[in-house]
């Protein structure tokens, strides 16, 4: 995946059964963002693979004050890349 400066990882082991997964996101390289975030902490949240889109979560992070609106796309893309990898891994382990 492209290095967006925003890192997203699983916050818990993925057993492949739950549609809702815990993810952790943090800024690895603030220079890649248009506006430097105020808080440099790791943000933990749950994401439903079946019902939600990464862009919705990114928008909620903007509305909650974690990121500036101009960075919503880069945050959404970072989450999308990680989610795609998790889904690809699930397909490999348990196709269908």
């Amino acid at each position: 995946a492209e290095d967006t400066g925003v890192r997203v990882e699983l916050a818990e082991e993925d057993n492949g059964r739950k549609s809702s997964i815990a993810l952790r996101l943090w800024v690895e390289d603030p220079k890649k963002l248009k506006v430097k975030p105020k808080d440099n902490g790791a943000i933990e949240f749950t994401f439903d693979l079946e019902k939600e889109t990464p862009e919705d979560v990114a928008q909620e992070m903007v509305e909650s004050g974690f990121f500036h609106e101009s960075d919503v796309k880069i945050v959404g893309k970072s989450i999308r890349d990680r989610v795609a990898l998790i889904q690809w891994r699930r397909e490999r382990i348990c196709p269908g």
Binding site: D29, G41, A42, E63
Partner: peptide, 27 residues
């Protein structure tokens, strides 16, 4: 370590905790 919890109006819970130094990319 300080942990902050932010609940978005949509109901999602964001839990913020410090990133360990080892996880930060070298600048």
């Amino acid at each position: 370590s300080v942990v902050t919890q932010v609940v978005h109006s949509a109901g999602r819970r964001f839990i913020v905790s410090p990133v360990p130094e080892s996880r930060l990319k070298e600048q």
